[in-house]
Simulated scan of single mutants.
Amino acid sequence: MGTSLPLVLLAPRVTDDSVRIWKAAIDEGWSVQRLPGWRVTEDLRHEKHDLSPKDDRE
């Protein structure tokens, strides 16, 4: 099983905070997708993602 990059899903509304999150995620090499609407798209709905929080201190 391959290792996938963390994925950050951003809300469709662009705010200063969401731009900061986007830039920080890109700097870390993470994948970023901004949702086109307030519902998760079909392609993302059928992908398997680990949604558990990660703690870097472990």
Rank of each mutant, 00 (worst) to 15 (best):
M1Y: 08
G2M: 07
G2K: 10
T3R: 11
T3P: 02
L5Q: 13
L5I: 07
L5M: 13
L5V: 09
L5P: 05
L5D: 11
P6C: 10
L7I: 03
L7R: 03
L7V: 05
L7F: 02
V8C: 04
V8E: 02
V8P: 01
L9G: 03
L9C: 09
L9E: 01
L10F: 00
A11C: 08
A11V: 01
P12M: 06
R13N: 14
V14M: 06
V14G: 03
T15C: 00
T15V: 01
T15E: 00
T15S: 07
D16M: 10
D16E: 15
D17E: 13
D17F: 05
S18W: 10
S18C: 09
V19W: 04
V19I: 14
V19Y: 05
I21R: 04
I21A: 04
I21T: 07
I21L: 09
W22Y: 13
W22N: 12
K23W: 10
K23F: 06
A24S: 13
A24E: 12
I26C: 12
I26D: 08
D27L: 08
E28A: 09
G29P: 03
G29H: 02
G29F: 02
G29W: 01
G29C: 02
W30P: 04
W30G: 06
W30E: 10
S31Y: 05
S31I: 05
S31W: 06
S31D: 11
S31H: 07
S31T: 07
S31A: 14
V32H: 02
V32S: 01
V32Q: 01
Q33P: 00
R34T: 04
R34V: 03
L35M: 12
L35G: 00
P36Y: 00
P36H: 04
G37M: 05
G37V: 03
W38H: 09
W38N: 07
R39N: 05
R39F: 03
R39G: 01
R39C: 02
V40S: 06
V40P: 04
V40C: 10
T41K: 11
E42T: 07
E42A: 10
D43H: 14
D43L: 08
L44E: 09
L44S: 02
L44C: 03
L44F: 09
R45A: 14
R45Q: 10
H46T: 15
H46R: 15
H46L: 15
H46W: 14
K48L: 14
H49N: 07
H49Y: 15
H49G: 04
H49R: 13
H49V: 11
D50N: 11
D50I: 00
D50V: 01
L51V: 12
S52N: 12
P53S: 14
P53E: 13
K54D: 13
K54A: 14
K54R: 15
K54Y: 13
K54Q: 15
D55P: 06
D55N: 15
